[in-house]
């Protein structure tokens, strides 16, 4: 790399080509000088130990959830009343619940529910937030004013209370609860998308593309969306963590997942009646929630630090 950099001009030598050793060097160093965005991202991200740990933890969680039926030590629904409320042991690693079901097996299936639920909520938030955000940011004017005012209004309603109200209207179950969580997250995505689009809207390449007759939809899809992807990815990771928290809260209140299925939040919810007899029923699933949310938050922060400067500024 050092050899290809322009050095001091050869002093006494009259031959300007004296230092020339062929084009090979210049070509070999081409990609280290203009490192691709993806490579820069990978290099920055892999140097962050904490974020890597979080990524591995999330990968592990997803794998466990995906292969749930094959990795559980016991049937998560099998009751064994003679062994109810047992503390963790060699047979039941995380103990048993009030009707003798294995906590670990229930947690493995719970991971499946919690992750899918969080993904569902974030998808709803993306659909309700990104599309209007693109429109508001790109077109500006009265569309922007109307959408921004609606966003302001939604953000004035305490998020959990709005979610509870939406669940109240549609009826309590996990699908409705996650739709509600998606609705309360949508304003964040809308604001983020809007400001990111506004930042790139005036760029020359957008103008160039429009001037050769590209349709607005194609401009948005091909040029604007890829440019706002990095702040969105950061927000998705952070939102996954918060969606898991929201799901846990709603399920704890009995407004989310319905028995006999159980997410981690619902397990804490049933466990708290036996707090003095079997604290493990509350402590272990709750600790799992903390770790999972922490992993998504750390991953989000790590992603933010790995993207370029502009993206970090846009996300603030």
């Amino acid at each position: 790399m050092t050899r290809s950099r322009p050095t001091d001009p050869p002093a006494a030598d009259h031959d300007p080509w004296s230092g020339f050793t062929g084009w090979a060097d210049a070509e070999a160093t081409e990609d280290t000088r203009t490192e691709s965005a993806v490579r820069r991202f990978v290099r920055r991200f892999s140097s962050q130990r904490l974020a890597m740990v979080a990524l591995v933890a999330i990968g592990f969680l997803v794998a466990v959830a995906a292969f749930a039926p094959w990795v559980v030590p016991h049937d998560p629904l099998a009751q064994n009343l003679s062994r109810a409320l047992e503390a963790p042991s060699a047979t039941y690693w995380f103990g048993t619940d009030a009707v003798g079901r294995d906590t670990l097996s229930r947690m493995v299936f719970g991971a499946r529910l919690s992750l899918l639920a969080a993904a569902e909520a974030v998808t709803v938030a993306l659909v309700l937030g990104v599309v209007p955000g693109l429109v508001a940011g790109f077109f500006g004017g009265w569309v922007d004013i109307v959408l921004s005012r609606i966003t302001d209004a939604v953000m004035r309603i305490p998020p959990l209370i709005l979610a509870i109200a939406i669940v109240g209207v549609f009826g309590p179950n996990l699908r409705n609860a996650m739709f509600a969580v998606g609705v309360i997250f949508a304003p964040r995505f809308l604001r983020l998308t809007r400001s990111a689009v506004m930042a790139v809207r005036e760029e020359t390449y957008i103008e160039a593309s429009r001037s050769i007759g590209t349709s607005t939809g194609a401009v948005l899809r091909r040029h604007v969306l890829p440019n706002i992807l990095s702040p969105l990815i950061v927000q998705i990771s952070l939102s996954m963590g918060f969606a898991m928290l929201a799901e846990a809260s709603l399920s704890f209140l009995g407004l989310g997942v319905q028995p006999p299925q159980a997410s981690w939040g619902a397990m804490v919810g049933t466990g708290y009646r036996f707090l003095d007899l079997a604290p493990h029923m509350v402590l272990i699933p709750g600790f799992a929630i903390v770790l999972a949310v922490l992993a998504f938050n750390v991953l989000g922060d790590g992603l933010r630090d790995s993207f370029g400067r502009e993206e970090r500024a846009a996300d603030r």
């Binding site: 963590g241 707090l275 509350v282 709750g286 929630i289 903390v290 949310v293 938050n297």
Partner: peptide, 22 residues
């Protein structure tokens, strides 16, 4: 602060009850 943001409130509450009440 990171832990505080990742903890579900109801779980923290139960841990506090376990500790200070039970």
């Amino acid at each position: 602060a990171s832990l505080g943001l990742a903890m579900p409130s109801f779980w923290l509450g139960l841990v506090l009850v376990l500790l200070f009440s039970v």
